[in-house]
Design a protein around this nucleic acid. Structure first.
Length: 195
DNA sequence: CACCAGATCCTCT
DNA sequence: GAGGATCTGGTGG
């Protein structure tokens, strides 16, 4: 079996639209004590470094969004009501762009995910940004984490890029501003996407 | 200090 | 597809 490469700064340090698109099909690995959870990314959204009224950087840096200003390849985890959301920071230091992971297809550690989500339905384990965080045990403790090494509690593995025919694009969802910019990407026909 | 919007989810219709 | 549950940082009085 081929040993897959861990995605590093070279991959993440590019514009978020491109990274969001190329993240589709990549594998998320989460180490939780002795359990390893793996999921295939099926849906993402890009948030831009400037001029994006839906992005958390729009009004500048605050204590809450400071991880967005880290170098590419770190996590920005934030709380939305009682739920958590996970972004991967893209582009360089102090360029606050990111990609939101909106949904993954469960691959390994499915039993643990079912327990975390309190459901047996595999299509409901990680088919939403906060469902994914719940299933994968992601909370504010991972905010700011460097994910560019397999020693990290969370990292991504490379996989071949999907062709354009395999991807669908739309406006971002769940936001009130800048809804119409086509920055949401998902694997066409995936049963594991958020809708 | 009080207020309130917000990158959600779940349970009904 | 609408409405309620439920949290909290950021902002302004």
């Amino acid at each position: 079996m081929k040993v897959e490469e861990v995605l590093t700064n070279k991959f993440y340090n590019r514009n978020p639209e491109l990274v969001a698109q190329e993240l589709l099909g990549k594998l998320v690995v989460r180490k939780l004590n002795k359990t390893i959870l793996v999921g295939k990314i099926v849906e993402t959204e890009a948030y831009l470094s400037s001029g994006d009224s839906a992005a958390h950087n729009f009004k500048g840096q605050t204590n809450r969004n400071k991880s967005l200003y880290k170098d590419a390849g770190h996590l920005y985890v934030h709380k939305m009501r009682q739920w958590f959301l996970l972004d991967i920071v893209t582009e360089g230091l102090n360029v606050p762009s990111s990609v939101l992971i909106r949904a993954v297809e469960p691959i390994d550690g499915v039993e643990k995910m079912k327990k975390n989500r309190k459901t047996e339905d595999v299509f409901n384990l990680a088919s939403g940004p906060s469902k994914f965080c719940q299933a994968f045990g992601i909370d504010l403790g991972l905010d700011g984490l460097n994910i560019m090494s397999q020693d990290s509690e969370l990292f991504l593995l490379n996989n071949k890029n999907l062709s354009l025919e395999e991807i669908d694009i739309s406006g971002r969802i769940g936001i009130s501003k800048a809804k119409d910019i086509p920055l949401r990407f998902w694997i066409k026909d995936s049963k594991y996407s958020s809708r």
